[in-house]
């Protein structure tokens, strides 16, 4: 099936998902509608394309099996972001544990990973930006990514991460300052 050229409304997707007969069609529309935004959100967290693909597929499978848990209190994509974020964090924690418990699987620095990554074509400045982001605490990196790349409002971010708007603003401001300092080599 082809990707629809026009955006499908959230309400329409939810109506389709509400009927067993149209469930799969609704789920396909949901994936087509949100896959790119979710993919990039995950990719910026896990960096590697294959990892991002695995995490995104797991995320969609989780959504397929638990869409009935969506209560409609937030926007659908906010709920999807929350699941994707949790999946990405779980993946990163597992990866850290594996690296910590394995002598052979020592993790190579991000700069080496990016140089070897066929799907990264950033210049030196972009590479330094990615290295700077890697230095940030996980939550701060998430906040930075959601604001800087996904252009998400603080209220929506608060819905996704379950953190107060004030704390998110402070976190983003700190993150921006740290990243700039890192890039400038200060």
């Amino acid at each position: 099936m082809q990707t629809p050229l026009t955006a499908i409304s959230e309400d329409h997707i939810l109506r389709l998902l509400d009927e067993p007969r149209t469930y799969e069609q609704g789920f396909r529309f949901l994936m087509e509608q949100y896959q790119e935004r979710l993919y990039w959100h995950i990719r910026r967290m896990v960096i590697d394309h294959e990892d991002a693909n695995d995490v995104l597929q797991n995320c969609f499978i989780k959504v397929y099996r638990s869409i009935q848990n969506f209560e409609g209190k937030s926007k659908l994509y906010t709920w999807l972001y929350r699941i994707a974020t949790n999946e990405a964090i779980t993946f990163l924690n597992q990866k850290k544990r594996r690296a910590a418990s394995s002598i052979d699987e020592e993790e190579s620095p991000l700069s080496n990973q990016l140089e070897a990554d066929a799907y990264f074509d950033g210049d030196e400045l972009q590479q330094r930006l990615q290295n700077a982001l890697e230095q940030l605490p996980e939550k701060q990196r998430l906040v930075f990514n959601l604001r800087y790349y996904d252009e998400m409002g603080y209220q929506e971010m608060s819905d996704v991460l379950g953190t107060s708007v004030g704390a998110l603003k402070a976190s983003y401001h700190h993150a921006v300052k740290k990243v700039e300092a890192f890039i400038r080599g200060v």
């Binding site: 990707t3 789920f27 396909r28 910026r44 693909n53 074509d121 950033g122």
Partner: peptide
């Protein structure tokens, strides 16, 4: 430049089918 990352060609076109196949 916003996006330094790329994806394999046709990745997003085939992803929904890949996910449904896995399910």
């Amino acid at each position: 430049k916003q996006q330094p990352f790329r994806v394999p060609a046709g990745y997003f076109q085939s992803l929904p089918d890949d996910v449904l196949r896995r399910i």
